Computed example of a mutant assay.
Amino acid sequence: MDLQTKKILDFQLIQSNEVKGSTHMELEGLKRALGFLKDYVNIKEVVTDIHSSIKKYMRNSEGDIKHLFDVWHVAKGVSKKLEAAAKKRGGKDIRPWIKSIVNHIYWISSSCGMMGI
């Protein structure tokens, strides 16, 4: 999405039979979109979920593009880890803080002026 015009610049639809399996669809869609968009715009930043193959691809193949993570996925991941820790022996004191910690993650993201973390 172009942040100034608020318009979607490209959309890729990948079927699982086009790639090795469903886990490879997200990465293939990103590769195709970047390949298409690079012919028309200068890409400075990309915001994605926290997908391990995408992290590796961006680090190794697209090092000139800043890669950020979607704050919703970051907050969800932290929340799940805190919930798991709260269920463990001696972790009951964590649970009352989970909502505040997740809200703080959103506040950090919004106050620093970035879409992702």
Rank of each mutant, 00 (worst) to 15 (best):
I105G: 00
E83A: 13
V47F: 02
T23K: 11
V46W: 14
I105H: 00
Q15P: 03
A86W: 01
F11W: 15
G113I: 05
K92Y: 04
K99D: 02
D2T: 01
D10A: 12
S100G: 15
N17M: 12
V47H: 06
I101G: 01
I117M: 01
K20P: 10
S111R: 12
F11H: 04
E45S: 12
S16V: 14
V19E: 03
V41Y: 14
D49W: 02
L30G: 02
S52G: 13
I98W: 00
R59A: 14
V41L: 11
I94D: 05
F11K: 05
T23Y: 04
M25Y: 07
Y57H: 10
L34E: 02
K81L: 11
I65G: 00
N60C: 08
I8P: 00
A33W: 05
S52E: 09
I50P: 03
I101R: 01
R59C: 06
L34D: 10
W72K: 00
T48A: 02
S52Y: 04
G35V: 12
M114N: 06
V71A: 02
L82P: 07
L68N: 01
K92L: 08
H24W: 03
I8V: 07
I43L: 09
L9R: 13
K76T: 13
V46H: 07
E28I: 06
L3D: 04
D49Y: 02
Q12G: 10
K7H: 14
G91Y: 01
M1A: 13
K92P: 04
I98T: 06
V41S: 13
L13C: 15
H104Y: 14
Y57Q: 09
F36S: 13
Y40N: 14
Q15H: 15
K99S: 08
A84Q: 14
K87D: 07
D49R: 01
G77C: 03
E26Y: 08
Y57F: 04
G29Q: 03
P96V: 00
K44G: 12
